[in-house]
Write a protein that binds this DNA or RNA. Structure first.
Lengths: 115, 115
DNA sequence: AGCGGTACATGGCAACACCTGGTACCGAAA
DNA sequence: TTTCGGTACCAGGTGTTGCCATGTACCGCT
């Protein structure tokens, strides 16, 4: 698949929100979840800034958790504001997606302006 | 509707491509077409740079056409490369949209990793 | 001459995904 | 002990993009 960079703008953050709504998680695992979900090109250098952003916006709660398999993890949990933001994200997504679909189907009458 | 800015990144250009595939057009008219298609917040300052970009990428042909209703128009026509780009755009869109839908439905089994 | 609608262009801004490189913890192998 | 690889996180800089404000210019009407 070609470069999805621009089309992922504003979308990846929503994906992370949704993943965290599914269950609490941490950066490294989220990257793999995204890759597994079909976004194979998404690297860790993309996800960590998103998590920092979510934290700054107070959409997630954070906890340091010791791990058996390496350094401690930063486990993120979606809070109420996060759930609210997730709802808004899906509303925006459906808004854009529906307009895109109607533009794609392109049945919008050109007679409107001509006659 | 909230701010769609980020979600429109990489999408508006495709919309313009599709509008031009529908029929040749010019900036001022394209802005109104987008507004009419539901993207009411899109201003002319957004569309003209897109058209310049399309021209630089050689996806459109341009012709100056005198108008009865004001200054001359720059009428853009989608060429073969443009049609090709449009196809690629819709492929990327459907790719992203399908992944988004499956993330949204969220039925992806969490048992996969646990055991 | 002045006004408003049509039509295009530019310059600066903010947000985002991406890339590179770096830090650090840990267990196993050398 | 040192080295290696896997886990886990972070920071800095880059390029693309949409947005806003502003400016220019053509034209018909008053």
């Amino acid at each position: 698949m070609d470069d999805l960079t621009e089309m992922l703008k504003g979308v990846l953050e929503g994906c992370v929100l949704q993943i965290l709504h599914h269950r609490e998680s941490y950066g490294y695992e989220i990257v793999k979840a995204l890759n597994q979900a079909g976004f194979e090109s998404v690297a860790d250098g993309t996800v960590y800034p998103i998590l920092i952003r979510l934290e700054k916006k107070h959409l997630v709660d954070v906890a340091r958790v010791r791990s058996e398999m390496g350094p401690p993890r930063k486990v993120y949990t979606l809070n109420n504001a996060g759930v609210h933001a997730l709802t808004g994200f899906w509303e925006r997504w459906e808004f854009v997606a529906s307009r895109l679909e109607s533009i794609k189907n392109d049945k919008h009458n050109k007679e409107d302006r001509d006659g």
